[in-house]
Write a protein that binds this DNA or RNA. Sequence first.
DNA 1: TACACATGAGTAATCGTTTACACATGCTTG
DNA 2: CAAGCATGTGTAAACGATTACTCATGTGTA
Lengths: 335, 335
Amino acid sequence: MVTMKDVAERAGVSVATVSRVINQNGYVSSDVQTRVTAVMRELNYQPSLLARSLRRQETFAIGLLIPQLDHPFFSTLAFAIEKTLFAQNYRTLICSAEENATKEDAYVEMLLRQRVDGVIFVPTGHSDQSLARLQAMTIPAVLVDRDLFGASRVSKVLSDNVRGGYLGMQYLLELGHRHIGIIGAHEYSGSMTQRLHGVQQALAEYGLSNPPLVLMDTLGQFEMGYSAGMRLLRLEPRPTAIFALTDVIAIGVMHAAAELSMRLPQELSVVGFDDIPLAAYSIPALTTVAQPIAEMGAKAVELLLRHIQQPSQPFETITLATRLVVRHSAMAPSR
Amino acid sequence: MVTMKDVAERAGVSVATVSRVINQNGYVSSDVQTRVTAVMRELNYQPSLLARSLRRQETFAIGLLIPQLDHPFFSTLAFAIEKTLFAQNYRTLICSAEENATKEDAYVEMLLRQRVDGVIFVPTGHSDQSLARLQAMTIPAVLVDRDLFGASRVSKVLSDNVRGGYLGMQYLLELGHRHIGIIGAHEYSGSMTQRLHGVQQALAEYGLSNPPLVLMDTLGQFEMGYSAGMRLLRLEPRPTAIFALTDVIAIGVMHAAAELSMRLPQELSVVGFDDIPLAAYSIPALTTVAQPIAEMGAKAVELLLRHIQQPSQPFETITLATRLVVRHSAMAPSR
DNA sequence: TACACATGAGTAATCGTTTACACATGCTTG
DNA sequence: CAAGCATGTGTAAACGATTACTCATGTGTA
């Protein structure tokens, strides 16, 4: 690998001068400037970011730790974050914990060793040890999407899950549904719990008692939504509507219903949560509670970079609004 | 940030000894061993991978360059690759070029500067300059999913796109369809072209001429499949089947059909390509030509690591079989 | 004329590791 | 008993950049 020394020798100058040319600081005669530039191109020289980062004590790298890369919500979020960071000349180290606390922990350690300048963290919710580890070092972190109980000295970007839960449930109740199944996931991080709070609020307004509920172990993929949906659809009496606390779950539920030869939305209304890109393209198109995914990512980056550039910044918690997007997967019950 | 020097001082030994404890090489008395270990834990010491990589001249990092992170096929592939590499103690630097040659080029340069040990590359197909750049340095690379004309000195993991194209088309013809629309994408990398070759082969067998064809600029997302589908479905006579050269396109097409109040698969048969996880959960479940995504990722990692560990290895091209997965989105035409 | 200051470029220390080499001690072995 | 080897540890030179210092020169100004 060609180094600065090689360039310096070939151009007949010292390494310091080459460095000055690269970083465009200090005084360099235009003669030397062009000569060095030519040599760099000729040798196809690429400065080592390892050496640079070691010396400068900053890497321009941000760790992004998410529960599952292979999940539309998180890959959309990751994409938004990567894009925003790239525009600001930061690289993103995307780490997928696979909803596994051990792997998450391994990744936190790896990111610290990698000396990333900061971390954007969507905890699996299966362990909060990792955040503690992170905070033990004084590296800036921001929590996105999932809150973590007891997390201090971090900024947070959340969305209004309580309101979202309320909106989805209220919509189904307003349509006239009275037998509504709910599907969520266990999670210590609380955003699911908050959605359920919202659901309860709506229920209370209508003076109704608790609905049939299925809680999956993790967010899972379509398959888990499918099997959770099956469980609800085998109930007697069968629910006329299902509120899935994730779009991916909702898609799984719709598939289950279709497999039982139920017509959608005539025989079953389904409402989702998240508004992933796919939601608009399911059949029927999914009515869902939208989170502003791209905005969440952008905000998280903004807060993090502000902290990196100005460590004295106070910590903030931003709660973004959720809203109901009405498409075609829900309608009034037939009877 | 606490360094090896801090640990050494606190434990009353030299940095060399600390290094020996960490790397478990050289002789260290068990007394010192435990003392140093204790201090490391006490100070929460994390070795700097920057310094280590600089010194050792290897980073244990692999660059993964894909066209769009926010696309089910690539996020599934990325997930598989990340998982395989993680198990082998390698980190993955995931880079999403957004089907943009400029960004792709910027990423290649970044990866080189980052001194990654190797690169797994799914080219956008909008420029082949980036690979040349990569090959100019002597860093091992393997091409996955998309071939690149004129790429030498790389290993490749492809799937049998010609056969896949043939299988999908042959299936529709066998069902009795004679007016079949095709949707693909422009791509210099050739895998789309190969699928079209397969389509032609099947057509030739049935003595049929060219079908209506829509080529999109890039792979795109659901939306592009939707609009391409709309174009075909507005044709007179309307096709009785559409072969979408990507599952994402297929989902978009099905949505377009549903919007035109067509019943699936009675009034329109759809066949996709890729077999992304979603394919099994669309309504109706998508009949598609499956690529072994996880296996492609695993093979790519295997070839790359082999090259890294043994630079003299010859370059290989592996072509994995595609196969038709029959679900419920295609049936015989009604008339 | 003398002095301050802008310009241009080199020397060497530094970032945090790893590792070749040196050195000391104790034990084995011929 | 001396040589040789295993064991344990420290010193210092890398790795490839950045940057604080130095030291020239030339130029403007009192």
